[in-house]
Amino acid sequence: MNAIEAQELTRDFGATRALDGLSFAVPRGQLFGLVGADGAGKTTAIRALAGLIALDGGRALVAGRDVASGGSLVRESLGLVPQQSSLYPDLSVAENLRFFARLFCLPKQDFRERSARLLGITRLEPFAGRRADALSGGMYKKLALACALLHRPEVLLLDEPTVGVDPVSRRELWALLHEFVAEGMTVLLSTPYMDEAERCHRVALVHEGRLLLEGEPGALLDDFARSPACRQTAPSFETLFLARLEQADRERERGDA
């Protein structure tokens, strides 16, 4: 069964079409990567899946329920780490955690165990009393992640979690995500870094609100290596994605002409 389903997502902001019939599906227990350049529509897609924006067309399903009509049931099964700040800067690490735990109505004992574990694995323990606005960028992201994980969501949506995070923390973050996925969580994340694609079970390349490419990273690379468009023996994801983006631009120019 699919934990996440995006069906023909369409959304306009004025004259800009941010999502243009974007479709993909993420089976339960997988780590799915949305890759795309700035302005490709990654954030819009994630916000649509979280039920934060209305769609002009299409349907977003999370844990088998339509996000638009699922209400609190959908939100209970969802964790979101947005691209921008999302925590109370004037509350401490521990206070932010406690506040969001209460919104999810987590029992006290549950909260204590859970927050201790999350503070441990994110190594935020020593900073529990520090205000959120005094955290470094990487620590802030980890706190946002901890807040989103408090209620053990089935589905975790992460918008560019690795941007602004140092390489060591970044590796740790990926290890954590794989741990969660191994426990049965479904993770969808977006990233502007093409090279992060190989760490996902499946990736999708998004461009101008449309899906250009989707599949298992290994298979995608193999196909590309065999195609005439590839001029290298051991191509990277970066060359693959850039080649595909160039092709898309060429196709559009031809269409316009």
Partner: peptide, 14 residues
């Protein structure tokens, strides 16, 4: 402005 509104809106509380 702080983005906390959206974070609250993705919790089950109305």
């Amino acid at each position: 402005e702080m983005g906390t509104l959206e974070q609250v809106l993705v919790t089950p509380i109305p």
